[in-house]
């Protein structure tokens, strides 16, 4: 649906101007245009591929960080349980240090705890629970560590192994 303007002087003048532009134009050869277009197309594909790689890499990194972060969140939560003793002062060696003070109330039995301090905590936990209950301490804080060590054996065990491998390995069979 086109409109023609045959008797319109303005349309004639504009057409003459357009024709002058057509005559005066020197268009680039078609192969040059297609070659430039091909370069543009390849560049666009390269940008798309690079952005896709970055996106996938970023998502994978985020997933890996999320998995690693969740594990790290679990282990401190378990180590905090035996760590109620602030007397140690050092948060890093929590498992061993915190157990040593917990065993210190039961200093009534120094010979057993003196040998393997770190490792003896977990195996002797049931014993110490009995000792604490026997000592008459109604502290609820002492009871959860013993049950916690029994229930969640693997996370504290891993922590104990990492903190002091030789004693745990020797005490494990005991």
């Amino acid at each position: 649906m086109t409109e023609h303007h045959h008797d319109d002087p303005l349309a004639d003048a504009l057409r003459e101007l357009a024709a002058a532009g057509e005559r005066g134009s020197a268009p680039a050869p078609a192969p040059l245009v297609t070659a430039r277009g091909e370069r543009v197309r390849r560049r666009r594909f390269a940008v798309l591929a690079a952005s896709a790689v970055l996106l996938c890499g970023g998502m994978g990194g985020a997933v890996a960080a999320g998995i690693g972060g969740s594990e790290e969140q679990v282990s401190p939560a378990d180590t905090r349980d035996p760590a109620p003793a602030p007397s140690s002062g050092d948060p890093a060696p929590d498992p061993t240090d915190s157990i040593a003070p917990s065993s210190s109330p039961s200093t009534t039995e120094p010979p057993e705890s003196s040998g393997p301090p770190g490792s003896s905590d977990f195996p002797t936990a049931p014993d110490s629970s009995g000792a604490t209950s026997g000592s008459g301490d109604p502290d609820p804080t002492t009871a959860p560590p013993t049950t916690g060590t029994q229930g969640a054996t693997s996370p504290p065990y891993r922590g104990a192994v990492t903190s002091s491998p030789p004693p745990t390995s020797t005490d494990g069979p005991d």
Binding site: L17, A18, G21, E22, S25
Partner: peptide, 15 residues
Amino acid sequence: FYAHAVRRLTGQLYV
């Protein structure tokens, strides 16, 4: 297509 249309389009854009 390029050879057929480029000059005409150039004239139109010139206006």
